[in-house]
Design a protein around this nucleic acid. Structure first.
Lengths: 199, 199
DNA sequence: TGGTTTATTGACTCGTCAATCAATAAAAGG
DNA sequence: CCTTTTATTGATTGACGAGTCAATAAACCA
């Protein structure tokens, strides 16, 4: 009994299911049938709406990146002063909405996919570029000379902490993960807790 | 015309070919036939010696880890004093033998495989444990309180730098990569260039 | 020499899976 | 109503690939 206007609902469900299945399997070796079943539809319908498995992966990735982007924007909106902005970006990177087993697993797999699918590579580069920008701006106010290098170091560390979580036996702990990066930040800027506050 | 004693030669060639193919494809979606062809043998022979594709992946991984281990041991043998030892471990992590496109690509894919194959997970954990140990020991002599946390931070950063290389447009530059991590180290310990030298 | 071990492969089996198609059915619209 | 559009699926196709097997052949051995 086909109600109309199902397309966005189905698509959203399939995107969620894609992420969940990749997270569960821990790899991109998930069949369209598995994804579709989890979303409660037939595999034919999944193809009908997305055209191909690759498009499903891309949609899933855009979804993850957009969640993360929202998290960052939300945190930045509340931050005042460069130091606070830096902390906001870092904390947002480990917020519960992104720092979850399944999302981390999916994210790792997208790095793999980036080596094959140009559009995935493009998206990941956009993400990396954005996170660097978000870090560089406030860093310029605190340590203009080293802003560029520090931003890249922080970004690398954030990615590295994610990566280590993949093998972690215990469930991800965003607060602790963020603490490690914040610690790096303080060491680089001089722990002086607020040296650049209140723009 | 079968010469005897081929087994180790074929195995070595197949291991190399496995790494090269994974690096080329940028994923684990490589067929045994592709690997075998690159090694100059039939796919049947590959199965004959390894039993399964999974065993080939495992052998490839052990090979990569053992190259890296050798690099670290070699560097440590020449180092004197804790600070120097730290530098040695970090530099070894970006030595030319490991820090190459194909190896980096393969390494990333092994992280993915670790989510599926317990033995791969075990091997990666051994690697992580060892790198942390190698860092923690000299750190204990320089900053006993923070040794544990710093070791994990450094390890995360090393992994993160590798990860970023996956998307890098320009070919990997080990020296520059190492510099970023060494910079973090100096910031954490106080740049005083040799505070812990000459044990 | 004849038997055993090692090396090596082509051909085949058996599954799996992405993608397609044709068919069913309910709503919308005139 | 009858048509068009949207939703939905079961069944099918076509390709591809891991792993197996039986056969060939050279080397070694007694």
């Amino acid at each position: 009994m086909p109600r109309l206007g199902m397309e966005p609902i189905r698509k959203a469900a399939l995107v969620e299911a894609t992420i969940a299945e990749i997270g569960r399997a821990g790899s991109l070796d998930v069949t369209v049938a598995q994804i579709a079943r989890r979303a409660g539809v037939s595999s034919a319908l999944a193809h009908h709406y997305f055209g191909s498995k690759e498009q499903m992966f891309l949609a899933a990735m855009r979804h993850i990146l957009s969640l993360y982007g929202a998290e960052v924007r939300g945190a930045l909106a509340l931050a005042e002063g460069p130091r606070d902005r830096l902390r906001a970006v870092i904390r947002a990177s480990f917020a519960a909405s992104s720092f979850r087993r399944e999302t981390i697993g999916a994210w790792l797999n997208f790095y793999v996919l980036a080596q094959t699918v140009p559009e995935v590579q493009r998206l990941l580069r956009v993400y990396q570029h954005r996170i660097c920008s978000n870090l560089r701006a406030p860093l310029r106010a605190l340590a203009p000379e080293r802003a560029e290098a520090l931003a890249e170091g922080l970004a690398a560390m954030i990615d590295g902490v994610y990566l280590r979580e993949v093998l972690g036996q215990r469930p991800p702990d965003g607060a602790q993960a963020a603490a490690m990066v914040l610690d790096y930040l303080d060491a680089q800027l001089g722990a002086g807790s607020n040296s650049g506050d209140a723009a």
